[in-house]
């Protein structure tokens, strides 16, 4: 799924980046960066309602390039600048985390563990 499609489905706004043709193949939704660090294995689209700079840092460490901030959360200027430095693509949407994930899933974007056939955490 391209970022263009993600933006359309979530009625989102592009905050950082310009490459709308960039493709994502799976997604992960969490407000807990500890869990993102522990469970994400691939270059997912990250959906989160957390908007502090450590979301960008976490994404950088995991080689995640695309983030959607949900629930109408607006990143502050320092977060935007950090994401720009890291060449990321940031979208915002007014939908909740649950609805955002559901809409993307409905349009074919599968979860990280399903798309990549990962074992579930025990």
């Amino acid at each position: 799924m391209t970022i263009e499609e993600v933006k359309k489905i979530l009625q989102g706004h592009l905050v950082v980046g310009s490459d709308l043709s960039y493709e994502v193949h799976s997604a992960y939704g969490s407000d807990l960066m500890s869990d993102v660090l522990a469970f994400v294995k691939n270059h997912v689209l990250l959906l989160t309602g957390l908007i502090n700079p450590q979301v960008i840092r976490t994404a950088e460490m995991m080689d995640i390039r695309t983030i959607v901030f949900v629930r109408g959360k607006k990143p502050t200027q320092d977060v935007i600048e950090l994401a720009q430095q890291k060449n990321m693509i940031i979208l915002t949407t007014s939908y909740s985390l649950y609805t955002s994930c559901g809409l993307l899933y409905q349009h074919g974007l599968r979860g990280e563990e399903e798309a990549n056939e990962l074992a579930l955490p025990r």
């Binding site: 407000d31 500890s34 522990a38 957390l50």
Partner: peptide, 12 residues
Amino acid sequence: ELGFGAGMGLPN
């Protein structure tokens, strides 16, 4: 509240 402290840091 900052998104950390899930008890996954050291195991990770």
